[in-house]
Design a protein around this nucleic acid. Structure first.
Lengths: 341, 341
DNA sequence: ATTCTTTATGCAAACGTTTGAGCAACAATC
DNA sequence: GATTGTTGCTCAAACGTTTGCATAAAGAAT
């Protein structure tokens, strides 16, 4: 319980504290014999350098901060949350840093938490989730030249260290492939308009149609919250309005797609025979439902790892200012889509 | 970027650093006028006390450590993980502590990570997940009187600060109710034998039968990994072996129950008409499948909060040694079970 | 024998706080 | 006018490290 300090080790080994310190850092100013002697004592006493004291003199604490809002829209945050944290934790660890996790009740308070961490010097840098991240905050951090990395995309700030996936391309590629499978009348079930992800995914859809020279039908674009219920309701309504003229539902999130799946089932439509369905994110549930949901998988964990890695590099390498890393996505084909004859 | 220190504030306010410090702690040794003057300067310079320096002198860093293994059995960890972290984070924050998150690749390395955090004094106390937590580790921490709280239950060590739910009672109550609904031949799909949760849940099942004086049929007890696939395979096999003689499947985890649901569907059995199904944990997917899965919900988030709260109390109150907090569970009735006529 | 290098170590200051002890200045008591 | 008490502040040590500089010892070069 009582802490063994460098002085205890020094006394026991009959050297000065500075010598012990230099043994720890494996300085070549210390003779082999002394090193051995000191190392033995350290082991015997179970000595571990006090990280706090170290941080104080080094002016660096070897820890990264992750700030996440934990608001009510749990549905969106959930699968993402797990993987992103795991990834970041893994990356952080690999770089021999610690991870401080701060959460905030709201997006607004998120900034306060961030600033608190920063100002009190509890972390050397920050990983921020882009979802709706406060623009002012990012501005401030940039201005102060404070190390940070963004996960995701913030519309207003493009020249910023970040790791992301290309939502536009992911959807565009998927839709293009779906068109080649024979689908033509594709409903797009988008998330809320004010999310950058929503806008990007929708754009991918439009670009694919444009390229394939398929006329764009505005009534097929629909907005809903990122939730199962919202997807269900919207899909049900769509199905009854346009039943003759749609053959696939593209959900901008798996939850939306799962809602649509349920709506199809309710209507007695066979999936994929009567209508195809595709989602986004490869939520765990996507593989558990029946038929399995075709979806687009983002390697979220890897994104977290990359972010941590990049942040450490920004912190440690004076000249490195960060970059934009785009992680490729992948379509996971399951039974909810098929080749149309 | 450059840090504003207490000395800068002192100089600017024409007082000594100690005075500034006492203003921060709102000591009554400082006059109202001086306090105001100093506070103004602090605000003007944007001063925030350096947490590291503070920790060094206080011998306390105001942060809690959470160590989690992130092994391959992602399925089990997943829904739990999210909520537990959110809860712990919320609790930690409310107590004005920070949260350090360390993950380990394996259960074995979990101990190393823990000891590292502890020895280097990066945290004031630990929250441990019980799943398979290393017994030796717990022994050591207890012996050293190092503050920690366990979430879940470790069989060997009962007199330990922890927050948990009562798995035995939860299952027993559920089974008792199910019996009263008319179910009688209940398959129990257990998790791996070496998990304490598995054993407890199974025991709840047996106690309920015993109390209702229903003969125990050993062939109805089956073990599987906590996974969807394992549940599916086991259930499929059971269904073909005992199709006349079972009317409900109790999955010790939602994934197992979902697998069983799928197996029933494959066989063309109607749920709940032909067979009832119940799970455990109220995984997000439980409400997304059709029919909705009846399940037992643990308020995981609340458990995390309680754990954080208790840990802080242990740290701060000399005399308080912690306690055992049992959080009640709740049955969530959905369509996969019904009153049998 | 003297000076110069080299090697191995110790000294002391610094990092930014907190806090017990000390001390002026003034008021209250006799 | 001396004594005591109170108020409001400052001084300096301490927390456990790291690191630039000084220095002692030993050997090499003159």
């Amino acid at each position: 319980m009582d802490q063994v300090t460098i002085k205890d080790v020094a006394k026991e080994a009959e050297v000065s504290p500075s010598t012990v310190s230099r043994v720890i850092s494996d300085s070549d100013q210390i003779s082999f014999q002394t090193k051995e002697k000191v190392k033995n004592v350290m082991k015997r006493l179970g000595y571990q350098p006090n990280a706090i004291a170290r941080s104080l003199v080094n002016q660096r604490c070897n820890s990264l901060g992750l700030v996440m809002a934990r608001p009510t829209d749990r549905a969106l945050a959930n699968p993402f949350f797990t993987d992103i944290i795991q990834g970041i934790a893994a990356g952080t660890q690999r770089e021999n840093y610690s991870l401080m996790l701060a959460t905030a009740e709201s997006y607004q308070r998120e900034s306060e938490e961030v600033l608190n961490l920063v100002k009190t010097r509890q972390v050397d840098g920050l990983i921020l989730m882009a979802s709706r991240t406060n623009g002012e905050l990012i501005n401030n951090l940039t201005k102060e030249n404070y190390p940070f990395v963004l996960i995701g995309r913030s519309q207003k700030y493009s020249e910023i260290p970040r790791v992301d996936n290309n939502n536009i391309k992911a959807v565009k590629d998927a839709v293009t492939t779906l068109l080649s499978l024979g689908y033509r009348d594709i409903v797009f079930l988008s998330g809320p308009k004010d999310f950058v992800v929503s806008q990007d995914r929708l754009q991918g859809y439009r670009e694919a149609l444009l390229e394939a020279e398929i006329p764009f039908r505005p009534e097929l674009i629909n907005y809903a919250d990122f939730s199962y219920e919202a997807g269900f309701k919207k899909a049900r309504q769509l199905f009854s309005n346009y039943q003759q003229n749609i053959d696939l539902v593209f959900g901008a999130d798996d939850l939306l797609a799962l809602g649509a799946l349920r709506a199809a089932e309710e209507r007695g439509w066979q999936v994929p025979e009567d209508i195809g369905i595709i989602g986004f994110n490869d939520t765990p549930a996507a593989s558990l439902v029946h038929p399995g949901l075709t979806t687009i998988k983002i390697p979220i964990k890897k994104m977290g790892e990359k972010a941590a890695q990049m942040l450490v590099k920004i912190i440690e390498e004076e000249s490195y200012q960060g970059e934009e890393i785009i992680i490729p996505t992948e379509i996971v084909w399951r039974e909810s889509t098929a080749q149309k004859e």
